[in-house]
Design a protein around this nucleic acid. Sequence first.
RNA 1: GCCCGGAUGGCGGAAUUGGUAGACGCGUUGGACUUAAAAUCCAAUGAACAUUGAGUUCGUGCCGGUUCGAUCCCGGCUCCGGGUACCA
Length: 920
Amino acid sequence: MDYRFREIEARWQQFWQQEKTFKAENSSSAPKYYVLDMFPYPSGAGLHVGHPLGYIASDIYARYKWLKGFNVLHPMGFDAFGLPAEQYAIQTGQHPAVTTSENIAQYKSQLSRLGFAYDWDREVRTSDPFYYKWTQWAFLKMFDAWYDEETNRARPLSELINRFKSQGTNGLNAARSAGAIDFSAAEWNEMQAEQQQQVLMHYRIAYLADTMVNWCPALGTVLANDEVKDGLSERGGHPVIRKSMKQWSLRISAYAQRLLEGLDSLEWSESAKEIQRNWIGRSEGAVMRFKVMNHEFEIEVFTTRPDTIFGCTFMVLAPESDLVKTLTHPDHRQEVESYVTDAVNRSDRERMAEVKNVTGVFTGTYAAHPFIGEPIPIWVADYVLAGYGTGAIMAVPAHDTRDYAFARQFSLPIVQVIDGDISEGAFDSKDAQVINSGFITGLHVKEAIRVMNLKLEEMGIGYSKVNYRLRDAIFSRQRYWGEPFPVYYRDGLPYPLAEEQLPLELPEVDAFLPTEQGDPPLGRATGWHTPEGYPFELSTMPGFAGSSAYYLRYMDPLNDNTLVDKAVNAYWQDVDLYIGGMEHATGHLIYARFWNKFLFDLGYVCKDEPFRKLINQGMIQGRSSLVYRINGTNTFVSCGLKEAYDVTPLHVDVNIVSNDQLDMEKFRMWRPEFSSAEFILENGVYHCGYEIEKMSKRFYNVVNPDDLADRYGADTLRMYEMFLGPLEQHKPWDTNGIEGVYRFIRKFWKMFFNAGGNFSVSDDEPTSAELKVLHKTIKKVQEDIERFSFNTAVSTFMICVNELGDLKCNKRAVLEPLTILISPYAPHLAEELWHLLGHQTTVARAEFPVFNTGFLVEDTFEYPVSFNGKTRFKLTCATAARPAEVEEAVRNHEQTAKYVAGGAIKKVIVVPGRIINVVI
RNA sequence: GCCCGGAUGGCGGAAUUGGUAGACGCGUUGGACUUAAAAUCCAAUGAACAUUGAGUUCGUGCCGGUUCGAUCCCGGCUCCGGGUACCA
């Protein structure tokens, strides 16, 4: 019987669906295993061959865990809110809900063809009110919580209010916004309710505040830091400017230290952890106050190098700093104001492009050096960022590169206080001695920092402090297609809806555009207010809102009473294996960890970290085909001959190229301008060149998994994607290679059939050679799967089939375990053969074959014999032979004399079961 | 600039703990089967030299070191990929 994969694959996909083969039970005596793929956003373009890579890997692992007796949770769903659908809606007028559900249907059908073992009963969609009820719920919890730095966890706001009532802010150690002020219990109790609300806003984990935001005019919305790359929006590549707006934010900065420390316990790649560490950006330093001369004000600066204070020759304020206005001397007002206006209006992109241009302006005011009392000029310059530290710095040009450039530009003095070369640039090494610095002179930098910090505290002008680069996450988007905030406004202050009023459903609007007054699209919705007439929030939540707790919802997706039932959460705990792209390292993976820690603090979930093991699959790159047109003609020259001509390379659709040979007829039909193309051939064929680049429509190198599943079957495609190379590595796609896997699959199939094409397996006892092949394979496949080395596992199956082919093995005792072994990789094939072998139930719940080392024991070993490290010949010895015996055999071997050739044997090294090395 | 990866045949890659470099697959070449093609099967395939008994030399980005032995460890460099970018 032929290997009819279309029929086989359709049959078993239907079977798994009907039987609910991969339904995960929420309580089970079996151990749990949770395998998760990163939430896909279903774009209109559909899948290309690179997308399923991670899904195939996680599916293989999930199926493997089933075979190992685990109760496996392997769900799939869709991140369905988001900008692309809304942009498309603006262009076409189609409701984003419509296009999104079409895209999901397309995505699901493509996924289904590949035979994934998902529990589809748990599918979630972020745009479904039944789902986003819990996104809104989490927001309400964050609105109603503060962060206690004493116990290092979030707590209900009611606790903070009680505390204010009894002791005000006295002794409070809480994460709060800049500008929060201290007060007594009496002062609190005297405040109006509105005033109290304003105070509380400084402490809420979800809070509303004026913040500098990344405003993207083209998208008409603000963006989070991780949604901006190089001053352009990640979606669409539009310019972004900085702007102050009233926005919802999440106080993720309160979690910076825990997010950093938590990384140590996770099984993530070093690079993924490193990206997060850099993003969190912890730096230890000191805050120091400088008195401004002839003013009552002080300037607070943050520095990581308090040891260099004696080298401070000027100070710099960020243009956005509130102090600029206050401190500027009247004589310099005009100059400063015009500089500040310019700096503030420039887009991030412009600012970045001008990094090399050193600009700044003197305020006319001086601060007093805290130790030597000398006046220090105060400047304003855009190289100091408002959002980091205190928005002001003490400049030490001798030991900071940026300050050095600035001092040079404006001829400011450079005073050296660390021993090192500053003739060409700043000397910023910390492994050096302090000089010229009063009481810290002679100390090593690290010691000097410690001593200085103590001194600052003693003098009451500073203290040591840890700063983080991580900013609070801006949580409002002025867009339509997202979760509405469960918030209404009364007298300009936000109030939460009651939990029972959730979900607050997204209203219909007449257009997905801002209103004429410039309000977000929800401003168009009629009746967008409470029954009492209080208006609802007009912004919606960002894309990361819906994806920050979806892994929890999968545990208990149908529960309408709680995000996830406590007992269910206690069973599934956390994600054991998470597979997805590295591009989420600074966005989703930080937000989800934060969100999870918050829910953990309030006791809603049992694990502090959500994703124990993370694997970032590499990108599948496109392999573009090129043809070479001779300039000024319509003649194309084959790749090998192109050097003799003046040519322009052109991309050609990879689907009309096979094995780098161009189908010239199809090429002429491809596009009208090529209909009269002429060719200069090599040996009668046109060879294309190739280039490895991103898989993208514009390079005509997109390969569709549906086409390949049609031609070779899903099992072949699955195995080929794995065979391509290590999961985490980027690698180019080359459709040619799939033939090799297809040949292998058919060879595998044929082992179960006789010459007449009938299913035929023998019940004879297997030979020791056959058992050896089987057990060698079990061992290797298991080891490979455990270390996520799927490419070598596929090779192992190929070797196994080649060897069993040589042995002409068709014994049930070998083929049956092999069928189970291959079932995670080629599940349809395995299921078909499993049933042909007479089983009634699914192979997916069979037991993974147990490796028996006894079958691999060898009596002899063929030693490679090397002389000074160069292998010369082989020598077969008994496995049990002692090293001395082996050495004896080598010395007496007929070939040995030839390689010793005149020299003398100094030593013979015998590594039992490995190698023999003769040293001459 | 800083941080993190990586570099092995014509191509994708293997070598898990310092022990036979190039598994497996693609491609290429030759052969078998066939009227022919496809499919299938067999053989060869790192390079150079030599040559038909075999062999010899070189070879895992480059230079050096440690070791009986290095793709693997150490020092220095080159190139490629990713992250980040005035973060004080």
